[in-house]
Amino acid sequence: MSGDAAIRIRDLTVAYHEAPVLWDIDLDVPSGTIMGIVGPNGSGKSTLIKSIMGIVEPAGGEILVFGKPFSAQRKRVGYVPQRTSVDWDFPTTVLDVVLMGTYGSLGWFRRPGRDQINAALHAIERVGMSDYVDRQISELSGGQQQRTFLARALVQQAEIYLMDEPFQGVDARTERAIVEILREMRRLGRTLVIVHHDLQTVSHYFDLVTLLNIRVIATGPVGDVFHDENLRKTYGGGQEFSLRR
């Protein structure tokens, strides 16, 4: 867990109307690690990701990406949206979606050329989707859709990746394939922040975990903070959690 903080959050508060969605968040994500963000529905997981990317305006606090505000570091951050937030009937193909990952490096007006297409095809190959390059995205299974968005993230050549429930609606085989890709990304020194909901797999997939419920209940190495007491604090006392670890 060496290295500087890839993401450093201090006193972050986000509110919709008057109710806080995130309250006084302090969080460090060391570079080169995989951090899971878990918490119940409405605990602010997606909002946290969106505030890091400047999509949501914080009411207060500071977010630094490699020591600078996000606006100065856009190109170093990649994003995988929640599957349910995507319009799957949009007339676009797998290659087209993956190419969107190159738009950031192109800037305004310039179009993707040979280099970008090659990079996209390479990323598509890495996620095992080469047979589906020209498929319209509505013709893909849930797992294939998720792989497509993972390929788009890969092609962004970012150093930090923010992923909103990348395992949602995928079959077990795809989930294993995605985890493999994530681990390879970590080997290459990437930092991954992943919103996750399956508590059973947290200790297998992540180095660090943040338990979130509007406030940070606990954050740190999975072995240190991912235990029943913290889970009760996060998800409420009524429910018993048995973690097979």
């Binding site: 999509i55 994003y79 676009t92 087209d96 979606v97």
Partner: peptide, 22 residues
Amino acid sequence: VALFKELKVTTFDPGLASSVGI
């Protein structure tokens, strides 16, 4: 023609668009 990719990405995925500076 000039803003084809900008129109496409802001229509399809405004979140990605704003995160990459479009």
